[in-house]
């Protein structure tokens, strides 16, 4: 990416950090700016994991109420603002999936969308080195391990759901993921 793009990403990140800080001080219009900068990305995460547009909108609503309440605790020195927000959305969507076992089946498109997951240039969401490092480490795993980690995390699948989908024994799936996660931790340099 060129220098101009980097500056844009940096500007967007700065705007987001400022908006979060002001939201944390109780400014609703600042939360509106956070929403404007991030709602499409967070909605994508909720939609991907819930597989249901209406549910995803309910989850997203809860996510921004959580963000409002937690904004004051965000520490820009410890986390990228987008990663922090995306994690809140991911957790909320997973909580929703696990809370309804009957509807908790693999949503359409939860799997086999690896092509969609290719990094995309995105003004706000460019996460620079962190993401490149994680993707490089995933690429260094055995293909099955990397795909199991990717598809469970991004698709909101349980061990059992991935095992069913791949028609592979549960024990094998667990072993791929556990070994993959161990290697990932070492590769990321904090194992």
């Amino acid at each position: 990416m060129g220098k101009v793009g980097e500056e844009n990403a940096g500007d967007a990140r700065t705007r987001l950090v400022v908006a979060l800080r002001e939201a944390g001080a109780g400014d609703v219009s600042a939360l509106r700016r956070v929403y404007g900068l991030t709602s499409a990305k967070l909605f994508g995460i909720c939609l991907r994991i819930s597989g249901d547009r209406e549910a995803a909108e309910d989850i997203l609503q809860d996510v921004y109420v959580k963000i409002w309440r937690r904004a004051a605790t965000f520490d820009a020195a410890r986390a990228s603002p987008v990663s922090w927000l995306a994690t809140i959305a991911h957790n909320a969507a997973i909580d929703w999936r696990r809370a309804q076992p009957r509807r908790d089946t693999a949503p359409e498109g939860a799997l086999g969308t690896v092509a969609d997951d290719a990094p995309q240039a995105d003004e706000v969401m460019v996460q620079d080195e962190e993401r490149l490092r994680l993707l490089a480490c995933l690429n260094g795993l055995e293909r099955q391990q990397a795909e199991a980690i990717r598809s469970t995390f991004l698709g909101g699948l349980t061990y059992q759901q991935l095992a069913d989908h791949l028609q592979t024994p549960l024990g094998t799936i667990k072993s791929w993921i556990r070994r993959g996660m161990l290697k990932l931790k070492v590769c990321l340099g904090d194992g």
Partner: peptide
Amino acid sequence: RLSPLLGTVVA
């Protein structure tokens, strides 16, 4: 560690 992966989800 895993959060940067969420940046790859389609908006």
